[in-house]
Design a protein around this nucleic acid. Structure first.
Lengths: 331, 331
DNA sequence: TTGTAAGCGTTATCAG
DNA sequence: CTGATAACGCTTACAA
């Protein structure tokens, strides 16, 4: 592939000055119609297309491209997020660069560096589970970054998350409304901010329903589906810690609980946090707190681009509402 | 965000010439260690990072960024493809820009134009169902484009697809091996090249099994799951066209067939083309011809980058093998 | 080993 | 309304 025609080529072909072509291409109106015609012809003839990459070199110009770093594009959760980001970006004329960190800090940092070196206008980022460099270690000036789906512990950081607390509260309230009095909480480590929030929602809902919290029913050791299965298995059999409903605070916990139910041949009312494909196919269909991941991505882009384009009063924290899908398993 | 430091700033700070900084940054060795030290300090102090976008402006340099246009990033099929593309791209030091056409030609063309204007090095493209402009209408020189998942009717076009014919053949052979003698083909319009290939595979397998083809069993009108359901419903009840097994030539046809089975309270041996999430959860689990979509994406990138980097004898057509997953529904 | 000067394709200043 | 000319941040002949 030889090189593509430039504005200079067009100017020569049309017999006008470079700047006149630039004016034409940029849609400025003050151009003699005869010249405009000649330029149009030259452009069509040469198949000229503006080189946006060169244009963005000029001060005050940008590539109108943003970056997204998630953990794995193939995972439906992140794919949905990416789609929301992508849609919001294209709607505003921005291109999107995506990268998967695989939850690895080093990989994550490498992607971020590359994107910054490429002079993308801003970044939407899911902080990886195995953290990389500290976010406030980046030497300013750095383009705006919006964190999504997980919060980051840096003052003033822009973060978008689901309404973990509210969603969990709704779920637990629904279980209580169904008559449950000993609702178990099964989730991952409370060091994960989202988990702590969901537990807070659980507690608030218990209190609102006039139920006392039994520490024997609160489990934060479900780092995998297998561990969740073991925990729920115990809840089903143990006399002391017996529960009459389960709130599974994440996807893996829901799956583990379902496995435990199957193994025991007996089920408890269950609501999970975060939807999953198979939820509607099981019997009974699994009730969940759905997160609008696409909306979270779109919100991140709105904040990023508003910031970028200098809008006033751009919020730095957005909590996207969840939706309780009651499908049957809550009874 | 004020502007970021440039090589010039570093040069001034270190008291050396611009070119020396460039040498240092590009890892050239012939640099006095004292100057190197001064430059390193200045870089650290200013937080300098090379502007790759500016560097790529020079002739012979590129952005080391490729583009991907699919129909919908949120769809697991395309997300898996995108992930394969992304992984292969990062492995070779390339960044990836993604865009969703929503199967709309105009949207698709707009994305392609934008990517070309941004001077991406090359494109991986899924041609949209509602076609846009003809691919050979692009005025050269245009960077290399590789089509994936669907073929495009342009001489010399680089296309990656699954082994539609072989995969369909294997499926039908498996049904025949199970004792089926009247195997129905249920699929979408034969105007779609992949469908025509799958039908060809069906026919070849019938012949190999010594079975005659009955036109009453071949249906290419399943444009939706509903239509497939109706077709399979008829196959279950009609005396004339009664089948004893079904090869569902795409995802939607599989789902339609399953619906029809459920409605009739009776099932036929079934194998579908293309895997789906729920397949392993149903009873019996649904057997399918799996496409390695990730591998297809990776193959596309390999061809794109090999072409780009001037490798010799880069193939222009790759057929990625399928895998038959027998899970139970084939009996 | 280091530096000067030119140029990549564009936009912006400012004089005609 | 139009056009020389100078940037933007970088790499690269070529010269010192």
């Amino acid at each position: 592939m030889t090189s593509r025609p430039t504005m200079n080529d067009v100017a020569r072909e049309a017999g006008v000055a470079l700047k006149t072509v630039s004016r034409y291409v940029n849609g400025e109106t003050n151009i003699n119609s005869v010249m405009a015609e000649r330029i149009a012809e030259a452009i069509a003839h040469l198949g000229y297309r503006r080189n946006l990459s060169a244009a963005s070199l000029r001060p005050g110009w940008t590539s109108r491209t943003i970056g997204l770093v998630i953990s794995d594009l193939a995972n439906p959760h992140w794919a949905t997020l990416a789609r929301g980001v992508e849609r919001a970006a294209t709607d505003r004329g921005y291109l999107l660069v995506t990268g998967s960190s695989e939850e690895d800090g080093a990989r994550h940092d490498a992607l971020v560096d590359r994107m910054l070196d490429q002079r993308l206008d801003g970044l939407v980022v899911v902080p990886p589970r195995i953290p990389g460099r500290a976010w406030d270690s980046l030497v300013p000036p750095v383009p705006p970054v919006v964190f999504v789906d997980r919060v980051v512990d840096v003052p003033g950081a822009r973060c978008i998350t689901a309404d973990d607390r509210g969603g969990a509260g709704e779920a637990v309230a629904a279980l209580a409304a169904g008559g449950a009095r000993r609702i178990a909480f099964v989730g991952d480590s409370l060091g994960i901010p989202a988990m702590a929030e969901r537990l807070a929602g659980y507690r608030a809902a218990l209190q609102a329903a006039g139920l006392a919290e039994d520490p024997a029913l609160v489990h934060d050791g479900a780092h995998s589906a297998e561990q969740a299965e073991r925990i729920v298995g115990t809840l089903l059999t143990s006399a002391l810690a017996s529960a009459d409903a389960v709130f599974a605070a994440n996807n893996r916990s829901s799956l583990g609980a379902l496995q435990a139910f199957r193994a025991a041949g007996r089920r408890l009312p269950l609501i999970g946090f975060d939807d999953f494909e198979a939820a509607i196919l099981l019997d009974p269909p699994v009730s969940v707190v759905g997160q609008d991941v696409g909306a979270m991505g779109a919100a991140a882009v709105t904040i990023l681009l508003d910031t970028l384009e200098g809008a006033a009063d751009v919020p730095s924290r957005v909590v996207v509402p969840t939706t309780l899908h009651l499908r049957g398993s809550e009874r």
